[in-house]
Design a protein around this nucleic acid. Structure first.
Lengths: 149, 149
DNA sequence: AGCTTATTGATACTGAGTATCAATATAGCA
DNA sequence: TGCTATATTGATACTCAGTATCAATAAGCT
């Protein structure tokens, strides 16, 4: 039985998704997709690049970032905006979610933005803005990382 | 009568605030404070630097960013996280607010995050995270920028 | 006016990507 | 299976948004 990612989709599912979209299945893309499906929590493009390189992969920096962009576009990854302005990425569950991120270990809890939609509708009518997107991101320290030692 | 910023505070108020905090009132700080009080909407550190330089000011890049950090720390400026990961800044009104930003002209509407606090309390109890901060930022196009021409 | 030390600007650097472009590999087709 | 058009890649060099260093300067207390 194929190993299933903790988000409920396999690397193969993701590769199929790429193929169905008309994108080519290349060695670098396979490597990146397998790498992200084997990970937990938040990671940056730089980390992905470093880790793949460390294990002997020849993927280039540009390819990492290009592939990440594709995966975000296809809603396979979510982009998370970190406090320092850099981007982290996390495998996405189906549906629109927000993230609660542990600043210590990068662990991510997804949650539904429940009432944020109402807030946005309300704002749209009150302000005359056409609203195109929003982020709600929450940072903290997870239970495990709160424990000393 | 002194000209009042659209956020209800003068540059002089801000300088007084700096002085009361024990910080020195220097020429570069005066220039930066006056510049931000004369502005509308969102601006970046780079813009502030460029604009001051253009009008003959000798402030250095590092000083701009240092001064911005001080003003964020004193809650005179709010830091806004933009889609590309860069930071924008906006003069802050009293109290904790969130921002609705026009991606075309940088105009900013502040709003109260109303029910976000409840959501966060709920998450804290359900996830065992100690929550340290959050952002809610909304992007769109303001009424004026929606009009063609 | 003198003195202490906070602050500054020049410079060089970093981190996080992005543009360019010739070389290569993929996928569809014969 | 081999051919071909073109999507994709990796090396390189670059940009953008800051940050570290540090000697020179200037605030502001006394």
């Amino acid at each position: 039985m194929e190993r299933v990612s903790y988000r409920g989709r396999t690397a193969q599912d993701t590769l199929n998704h790429l193929r169905e979209t008309g994108l080519r299945i290349t060695e670098p893309r396979v490597e990146v997709v397998e790498e992200i499906h084997g990970r937990q929590g938040l990671f940056t493009g730089e980390q992905l690049y470093g880790d793949l390189r460390e294990r002997g992969s020849g993927v280039g920096r540009a390819t990492i970032f290009r592939t990440i962009d594709v995966l975000v576009e296809l809603e396979i990854l979510d982009r998370v905006h970190q406090p320092d302005g850099a981007h982290g990425y996390v495998l996405r569950s189906p549906g629109h979610r927000h993230h609660l991120v542990c600043s210590a270990c990068g662990d991510v809890v997804e949650f539904q933005g429940c009432n944020v939609g109402d807030l946005i509708d309300d704002l749209a009518t009150r302000t005359d803005f056409r609203i195109e997107g929003h982020w709600l991101e929450i940072f903290g320290t997870c239970g495990r990382c709160q424990q000393p030692g």
